[in-house]
Design a protein around this nucleic acid. Structure first.
Lengths: 192, 192, 192, 192
DNA sequence: CATGAATGAGCTTTCATTCAT
DNA sequence: AATGAATGAAAGCTCATTCAT
C-alpha cells in the first residue's frame, strides 16, 4: 500500500551532518590528520554509521569534497571589468573563509596518495570558477572588446592565481587587490 | 694537529643527508605522512641520531625547508619582458620537479598545526622569488617604462600565481605559458 | 513429509537456508571467523531474521551442527572385513570433502569457549559413526570371529583415528589406506 | 675492543615470555580469538615490542608453534610392545595437557586461512612423533618380528590416531587405552 | 655520540548485537 | 515478521618519542 521502503529509514540529516563535519575537519586538519573518530564524535554518530555510507576514509573525504559547489552569487555589473572584479572578489572571500586555503593545500599534498581528492576538487571548484571567468572574457571577445591574439587561458589563470600567490606571500589579501589585478589584466587584454 | 673539540665530532655529512632525505619525504608524502622511521632508514641513521640534532618532527621538517634556497640562475636578457619571461620559466621548471607542488600543498595544509613550515617557506622561497620579480619591475619603473599608478604587488602576484592556478587546473603547464602570461602583464603595465 | 507443528516459523525454507549457509561458513572459516553479516547476506536475509530464530551466534552455530547427520550409505558386503573397509572408505570420503577437516578443527578449537559445538558434533556425527563400526564388530563377535578379550572401543578408535592421523600428517589420504588399516585391525582382533 | 653489539640489547627473557604466552593463548583461545593486546599484556610488554620481533599476528603464532618440540622422554623398554606403549602413553599425556587438543583444532581450522600454522605443526610435532613410532617399527621389522607386507604408515597412523578418535569421542582417555591399542596393532602386524 | 629497544596513544576497520520502522 | 540503521567494543597495526647500553 504504502510506498515506504522496508527497514528503518536513514535519517537524512545524518548524512548531511557527517559530510559537513568531514569537510570542516578536512580543511582544518588536512586529510591525513583527519580522523574518523573525531568526525564521528563531532557529527554525533558512531563510526559504523559512517562506514555504512562510505567505504573508507578516502571515500568519505572524497564525498565531502564532492559536496562543494560553487555557490557564489552571479555577478553582472554590465561591464566586463565590473564582472571580473566581482568574480575575483567573490573568490577572495571564499578563500578567506576559515581554512579555505588549507583545503587546497591538503588536496595538493595528497596528490601522490589520494589523487581523487584533487580530481574532484578540480571538477567541483576549480573548473566552475575558471568557467565563470572564461565566459565573461569570451563574451567580451565576442563584443570585440579584446585583442584577438590574447590567451584567455593565461588571463583566467592570472586572475585566479594572483590570489593564491598573494595568500602564499602573506595569508592576507588587501581589499583593493581584486581591483588592482583586474585593472592590469584588463589593460593587458583590451583592444586599444 | 687538529684542534678538535673533545668527544666524537658530529659528521656534517650526516646532517646534510638527513635534511635531504627529510625534504624529499616531506615533498613526496606531506608532513603528516612523513615518518621519522623512514627518514632515519633512508638516511642510514637511527632515530636518536635525528633527535639529537632536532628536537621534534616539526623541528626537522622546518630545518629541511630552511635548507631550501632559491638557487636559480639569474636572468638578464637586457629587456624587461625577457627578464620576466626567464624568471617565470625558471619558476615553472622548479614547480614541475617531482612533488614540487606537493611541498607547497603540505606547507599550506599545515598552516593551522605547524605554522613554522609556512613561515619558513615564505621566507626562503616565496619572498626571494617575489623579490627577483619586483626588482625587475622596479628597475623598469625607474627607467620610465611603466605606468606610474600600476600596482607592482599585483603584477608580481599575477606572474607567479598564474602558474599555481594553471597547475591547480591540470597539473601540467604548456611550454608557452610563461610568454602568454608575461605578454598580458606587460601590456597591462607598460606606459603607452 | 514434515508434520508441521503449530507455532512453527512461517517459511521453513528460510530456516533451512540459513542453517545450510551457516554450516558451510562454519566449516570454511571456523567459528570465530564466521560472521553473521555474511551468513545473512549469503542466505538472502537480514540479521534480525537470524536473531529472531536463534539467540546468538553460538546458538546458530550449534543449530547448524545439529543438522548434521550421518547420511552415509549403509555398507553390507556380507563380510566383516568388507563392511569395515566400506565404512572407513565412506568416512575418508566425507573427511575429504572441502573443509571436512576444518569443521572438526573449529569444533575442537572452540571446546573452551563454545563447548556445545563439540557436544553436538559428538552426538550427531562422531557417535553414529562409531556406532556403525561397533555394530559391525559386535556382530562379528557374536559370530565368534573375534578374540574375546579384545577392546572393541580401541578397535573402533583405531579405525576412525587412523584417518585423522593420516590427514594431520599430510592432508591427503592414499586410496588403499582404508584397506591397509582394516587389514591390520582385522589381523589384530580376529580369532586365530 | 669489546664484542658487544651496538645499541640497547634485547632482553632475551622477553622473547621467550612472549612466545610462551602466545602459545598458551593460541591453544586456549584459538588463532582468531587470540589478540596481540592480550598477549602483550600477559607478557608484560607493549605491542610494538612484539611487532619489532614478528611482523604480524600470523608470524607470531607461527613462531610460537615453532618453539614446540617433542621433548618427550626417550622410551626404551627393550621390547617393541613396551616401546610402542610407552610412546603412545607419552602422547596421551601431552594431549591431555590443558588445551592440548584445542591447539590441534585451531591449527586445522585455520588451514584455509593461515596454512603455515598447520605446516609448522606438522613439521615440529606431528612428524617427529610419527618418526619415533616408525623407527620402533622399522627396527622390529629388521629383527624379523613383523609380517613383511604390513603397512607401517597405516600402523603409525592407527597408534596415534586412536588417541585423537578417542578424545573426539569423549575428551577423556582411559588409563589402559594405550595398552589396548598397542595390543591390537601388535597382534595385527607381528609375524605369527 | 650512536645504536637498537621500548612504549603510550592512536588509526582505520570490523563484528555481534539491538533499535526503529 | 522482516528490514535497514545504529552502536559499543574491540582488533591489528603504526608512529613520535624516550630509554638503556
Amino acid at each position: 500500500m504504502e510506498d515506504r521502503l522496508p527497514g528503518r529509514p536513514r535519517d537524512p540529516e545524518t548524512e548531511r551532518r557527517i559530510l559537513d563535519v568531514a569537510l570542516a575537519e578536512l580543511a582544518r586538519d588536512g586529510y591525513s590528520r583527519m580522523t574518523l573518530d573525531s568526525v564521528a564524535a563531532a557529527a554525533g554518530v558512531s563510526k559504523p554509521t559512517i562506514y555504512r555510507r562510505w567505504s573508507s576514509k578516502a571515500d568519505l573525504a572524497t564525498a565531502a569534497i564532492e559536496t562543494l559547489r560553487l555557490l557564489e552569487p552571479k555577478v553582472d555589473h554590465g561591464s566586463t571589468v565590473g564582472d571580473l572584479t566581482g568574480t575575483v572578489e567573490n573568490f577572495i572571500r571564499s578563500l578567506m573563509r576559515p581554512n579555505g586555503m588549507s583545503l587546497i593545500g591538503t588536496v595538493l599534498a595528497e596528490e601522490g596518495h589520494t589523487p581523487e581528492l584533487l580530481r574532484l576538487f578540480r571538477e567541483r571548484l576549480v573548473a566552475p570558477r575558471r568557467q565563470t571567468l572564461r565566459t565573461i572574457l569570451e563574451q567580451a571577445k565576442k563584443r570585440g572588446e579584446l585583442r584577438p591574439d590574447v590567451s584567455l587561458d593565461a588571463a583566467v589563470a592570472m586572475l585566479v592565481g594572483a590570489v593564491y600567490a598573494r595568500y602564499l606571500a602573506s595569508s592576507n589579501v588587501p581589499p583593493r587587490f581584486a581591483r588592482d589585478v583586474v585593472e592590469i589584466v584588463w589593460a593587458g587584454i583590451r583592444k586599444l
